[in-house]
Design a protein around this nucleic acid. Sequence first.
DNA 1: ATAGCTGGCAAACACTTGTGCTGTCAAGTG
DNA 2: CACTTGACAGCACAAGTGTTTGCCAGCTAT
Lengths: 217, 217
Amino acid sequence: MRTADGLSVRQEKILRYIEEFFSKHGYWPAIRDIQSDLKISSTSVVAYNLKALQDKGKINRQGKVSRGITLPTSMSPTLIGPTHRVPLLGTITAGQPLPDPEQVDLASAEKVEVPQDLASADKLKGVYALKVRGQSMIDALIDDGDIVLVRRQETANNGDMVAAMLVEENSVTLKKFYQEGSRIRLQPANRTMQPIYTTSENVRIQGRVVGVLRSLF
Amino acid sequence: MRTADGLSVRQEKILRYIEEFFSKHGYWPAIRDIQSDLKISSTSVVAYNLKALQDKGKINRQGKVSRGITLPTSMSPTLIGPTHRVPLLGTITAGQPLPDPEQVDLASAEKVEVPQDLASADKLKGVYALKVRGQSMIDALIDDGDIVLVRRQETANNGDMVAAMLVEENSVTLKKFYQEGSRIRLQPANRTMQPIYTTSENVRIQGRVVGVLRSLF
DNA sequence: ATAGCTGGCAAACACTTGTGCTGTCAAGTG
DNA sequence: CACTTGACAGCACAAGTGTTTGCCAGCTAT
């Protein structure tokens, strides 16, 4: 079985692993790193596939040099140090169901780079990204197409901007959270839109918005 | 003899060498690389100085790992290739002068990482970052503390959000640009604030806003 | 079938590379 | 002067790592 690039499944995995390893450690993996983490039985298998990857131009190698695997610049996201990346889990709208973050394979999800200036690595634990559809949060300075960073948490304070799941409707939406006695008000940040009132049983907080990225290109 | 950083001459050289080696090869040098290229007589001398550098926080090391020297991200301004970083030139407000981008030493300026998802490397040519002070652009979804990415350009179309310099006032401000006959209207995106009317001679466009980053942490 | 590929496995081998001594030497320091 | 400390040398060991060599199983085209 082959992927679109003409790479075998294993090669694809190795390629991803190399990229991730560098992001995490800041230096390149040794053959044995790849072998053990990917649970490949022998170093020679890795060597074999590395050669294949090299032939296909997916990686560069310096013969005989330890940890001399590098990615062509076009492929390497950020060649400097450990970068901060969070999984982009999908799109959040005012009515679409969103895959439950708990159940998504985080390793395979698309990643979004997060500027270091926005957050240090330890603050990004449990943070994922969602692309925003719709303008329900326009007054909170979040527009259609923006990417929001959401930190997973199950509770929220009044006024927090949260990704909340409505259990009955089986949908997830981006709103401001207000507990008003026994009921919950989910308030869009848009004057033209009405809040949602519901019971606390029907609401499951998925996370709180902690950052926003927007491209105007 | 010591340099300003409290590093010995040799340590300074080693540090430079590591940086240069990485930009050249894409992977980190081994102790023996440093030794031979810097014509140091023994590997232990290199090890000795590396330890000193580590103690001073100038490098990170991964014990026992080949080529496991890395530079802290804060130290490596632009190590290699398209790293998607733009200089952070300062703060833009509604009245403060801003250093002229042309004349700032870009190499030495603070850098902001730009997520790949916001822009590819070639789109970032001539782009710099500014931290926003004040809420004059609140209706354009830009708040106090946000970082805006600005692409240098001298002209603008109506409705573009630009960093504009008012020559007489010698100040730079973030506004929406409208040419109205022979006069220029610089419109804050904030209902409570008044536009600035001036002549086209008095306005020098410095760049157009192409992206926004915001941290809610 | 038979030969020729591809992908995988295991073990051994040899080079690469970090580390750990053991010294030397000059410049303090009491 | 004896003692300490910083900086440097030389060398050898022990990991860390890439490479090589055989061997095997499943396919595919001849």
